[in-house]
Nucleic acid binder design. Sequence first.
DNA 1: GTATCTGCAAAACATTTGCAATTCT
DNA 2: AGAATTGCAAATGTTTTGCAGATAC
Lengths: 141, 141
Amino acid sequence: MKSKMSIDTLGEYLKDNGVKPSYQRLKIFEYLVQNKNHPTVDTIHRSLLPHIPTLSKTTVYNTLSLFIEKGITQLITIEENEGRYDAAVASHGHFKCLECSNVYDFEFEIKDSGVSGIEGFKVDEKHLYFKGVCKDCLSRK
Amino acid sequence: MKSKMSIDTLGEYLKDNGVKPSYQRLKIFEYLVQNKNHPTVDTIHRSLLPHIPTLSKTTVYNTLSLFIEKGITQLITIEENEGRYDAAVASHGHFKCLECSNVYDFEFEIKDSGVSGIEGFKVDEKHLYFKGVCKDCLSRK
DNA sequence: GTATCTGCAAAACATTTGCAATTCT
DNA sequence: AGAATTGCAAATGTTTTGCAGATAC
């Protein structure tokens, strides 16, 4: 999912995935696609409220659940007590900087030979999150 | 941390890590060591209540925070809204079976060459959780 | 006009905090 | 007694649920 995408194209994308593109849904999905900073429900709601003054958090919750159900959004869990959402596609890892709190994406590859203890298990999802200090915060010292 | 360990030994272990071994703390730590099923606060509380009828959830929360602060327990986050605790030591991954909900530990090794996008970052913690179907549930079909 | 979608208000949970009672030495 | 620990009750914060009103086709 590219960041630059017209509302019309987003609407088509939603339809293709079985989501009727209401105004709220379009705006929420547009936000997810344009803001790859893994927002929380609250962040999304606060950001959209100026544009959609009647938007309720319930609708944000409903909409995100729907997106997840349709497979176009992913819920990532780094800390407890803060769900974060991601207009998901390919599997990728998340790096949280302990200084600036930013969450960065990264690509990973894990070979079967690098894992032991769950031989014979069927693995459907691989989630990785790392924590540490990002390059920017390191260079600021 | 071995599963078979006398209360006395556990007490020594707590002391060695700067935790005064009160009865509640001993029992909570003993539970963690003996039940490697990554319990939630509620699970721990429910399990110990028959033995310690006055035990409050606040104490379970306080105690686990203390354990984490002292580095003898680890908080793992697989789903949002359910903290799970682990008498932690070496870094290991967690596999959650989507059928039986059990959480299994596994060992992993990730080579730097298998990761791209966070070059130059300082990585302090690597968390992995996989989801899928465990061997037992697979063979039951 | 009937289905669906939205959003308010209340409920349900998990976690934290303030403080008083209890325990330990 | 003095310090640390425990636990009740209330506060906080997030997510879910029930339902009535609004919107869309």
